[in-house]
Design a protein around this nucleic acid. Structure first.
Lengths: 162, 162
DNA sequence: TATTGTTATACTCTATAACTATA
DNA sequence: TATAGTTATAGAGTATAACAATA
């Protein structure tokens, strides 16, 4: 590559490094999970349902920040694979409770093992202290809501939502 | 929110925190940039072209990890907005050199200011040392290529590319 | 043959509006 | 009226294959 190309500004951007890190994680996931894999979101769903049997679809979606409308197909695929059952709540018939089938219990356990290996691979360059630092820093970054806080800033061009 | 919901496993995943952090960055960008905004990738392109006048489209795409095919529309929109000019290389007529117009020079400067404010907002919860740590950790995570290294691991289910 | 740009296409992810059935 | 789930749809982002022009 021609090394007279100036990437100093680009490389100094947090957003760009975040994007690169996410891509590296996605590449590792896709490669080691193989072609007929569950999506990341679905593996997370299985794990959550395993820890919270009968969890409401709306609750799972809220935790994973997946819109209700988009939950339908994702859960539907898990049902089609025979991993998850939808059961109507006896007390509130609007609500769908999610349960794992026997195959789903196995898949959830395998998914957790896979994700643990996946993260161990990615984090193998770090020591324990650095892993904790990275986790803590990302958590604080994610929890920092600059939009709802809405300090009535003066944006460079337009302002407001959507 | 019902607090008898177990999210300990989910919250401990690096990938989930990375996803949450990326979402927080995207929300801030979208809110403060407004509706008719340039996309993040396009703002990065303007900055790169500003630092490297006449940069080849293929080089820009490689730096930002955007496929050639997808560069066409992104650059085309910048051309349509009157910010960028495509010029054929005199020495290799296959190559398109990207240049900023006068309006593009202004837009690139405004974009850099906007991104600086954007990152400053997101990073305002951190001290200088923590910002450097986060940046360094993300960079190392992104540079850790577990796929090309391909240690011939034993994936949990399938293996192979795509 | 290989590379750059281009076109066409498709798949994923995300977001919104509108509908239903329940409450 | 408000909520959970659903349907349909649209917009981004990303990926591949095939082609023309050029090297």
């Amino acid at each position: 590559m021609s090394d007279d190309f100036d990437t100093a500004w680009l490389g100094g951007l947090l957003g760009f490094q975040l994007r690169r890190a996410s891509a590296a994680m996605a590449d590792d996931y896709a490669w080691f999970a193989g072609p007929d894999r569950l999506r990341q979101s679905q593996m997370l769903m299985l794990g959550l349902i395993a820890d919270n049997p009968g969890a409401h679809a709306s609750t799972i979606g809220a935790e994973l920040r997946i819109a209700r409308a988009n939950m339908v197909q994702l859960v539907g695929e898990l049902v089609d694979r025979g991993l998850v059952e939808r059961r109507n709540s006896p007390t509130d018939r609007r609500i769908v409770e999610l349960h794992l089938t026997d195959a789903g219990i196995e898949a959830a356990a395998a998914g957790k093992r896979f994700l643990a290996e996946h993260e161990a691979r990615m984090l193998s360059v770090f020591g324990e202290r650095q892993r904790q630092q990275l986790h803590s820093l990302l958590r604080r970054l994610a929890d920092h809501d600059t939009v709802s806080d809405a300090p009535r800033g003066k944006p460079s061009k337009g302002l407001g939502p959507r």
